[in-house]
């Protein structure tokens, strides 16, 4: 086993052990913290597919995160009130259905945004994905039907068949399993022919085109899958907070998702999880000491970018792997 595999295993076990322990000693707060880590890691794993493997620096993934969140919120609201949604279909409070809708909606949005954004590259791509996310953000703010600026509350957390999702530990376990399955999917994609083409398109698009593969289609597919995963995370995040608001769509969120990946280590399988854990712990620890924690978070982040380019996993495993 390589050193990275060992570190990955330790991370996975730790993320499971802490909430179990917290549950045993009656500290549900730490379970919520771990759930937050799992969900953010899931969102960042989605982004890592586009950013880490495909080299597509999307600064607009908050759009997909928020779309997933709103899918959950809107379905739950209609499920609760009994009002039909569209085409006479009613809402629902079943998580599997909500996840499907969230992932598909986010994926479709990813296709649309990707189809335009991927015609460009470099700085243009960064700014255009940012602009599209802002467009979704302003739409959510100015459309009053689902709360507008005030957001939307989910009165009762959605249900998963056979599990009492209101128990913090049960909800954590749901998120944990979804995260592991998604990381597994990420590994499968990375090792597949599609994944090889995607990584090759990042390293040398001209060569990829020369062997007869159009980078655009590969990238668009990756971008859409990436959006689906992040959308799924958004649905879970909405259920964790039992609240959706435009802040899930804000550009700070997009920035945070990139930060998670970089803190953990770009393109690495467990980079997003390592980054999310580090981020939430920094937020919690600094937040306990000073109200100005964002100031110090900024300094830490600046230090990581300027001096420690491999992120946490790069530091632990000692091998630089960037971009």
């Amino acid at each position: 086993m390589s050193r990275e595999t060992v570190v990955n295993l330790i991370l996975a076990v730790l993320l499971l052990a802490v909430p179990l322990l917290a549950n045993a000693v009656g500290q549900p707060f730490y379970i919520t913290l771990a759930t937050r880590i799992a969900i953010l890691a899931l969102a960042a794993t989605g982004l890592n597919l586009a950013l880490g493997l495909g080299g597509l620096v999307s600064f607009g993934h908050a759009a997909f995160f928020g779309i997933g969140g709103y899918a959950a919120g809107i379905l739950a609201t209609h499920g609760f009130s009994g009002d039909p949604l569209i085409f006479g279909l009613s809402g629902t409070n079943l998580m599997p259905v909500i996840w499907l809708v969230a992932a598909v909606t986010a994926g479709l949005a990813g296709l649309a945004i990707g189809a335009i954004s991927l015609r460009t590259s470099g700085v243009y791509f960064i700014m255009i994905t940012l602009a599209f996310a802002q467009m979704v953000y302003y739409f959510a703010v100015s459309w009053p039907a689902y709360g507008g600026e005030d957001g939307l509350s989910i009165l009762v957390r959605n249900q998963f068949p056979g599990v009492n999702s209101m128990r913090p530990l049960s909800f954590f376990l749901i998120c944990y399993v979804v995260l592991l399955v998604s990381i597994g999917l990420f590994a499968l994609i990375r090792a597949s022919r599609f994944g090889s083409a995607l990584q090759a398109a990042r390293q040398n698009p001209v060569r990829v085109a020369t062997v007869g593969i159009r980078p655009f289609r590969i990238r668009l597919t990756a971008f859409a899958i990436s959006a689906m995963m992040t959308g799924l995370a958004g649905a879970l995040f909405a259920d964790l907070n039992r609240f959706v608001s435009p802040s899930m769509l804000s550009w700070h969120m997009s920035g945070e998702l990139i930060v998670l990946i970089i803190l953990g280590g770009t393109g690495r399988l467990f980079g997003p999880l390592a980054g999310a854990a580090l981020y939430v712990i920094i937020e919690y620890a600094l937040g306990g000491i000073t109200e100005r924690w964002q100031f110090f978070l900024g300094l830490i982040l600046l230090g990581v970018v300027l001096f420690a380019r491999g992120g946490l996993l790069g530091f632990v495993t000692g091998k630089a792997r960037h971009g």
């Binding site: 620096v57 600064f59 920035g255 100005r292 964002q294 100031f295 978070l297 900024g298 982040l301 600046l302």
Partner: peptide, 27 residues
Amino acid sequence: RLYDRDHLDQVLATFALILIFSEGTRW
């Protein structure tokens, strides 16, 4: 220090600067 870096590093470093500037000004 960022001129030779890729755009991702530039985005992150300047994002960090925003956090520092905003929170510093609030301070």
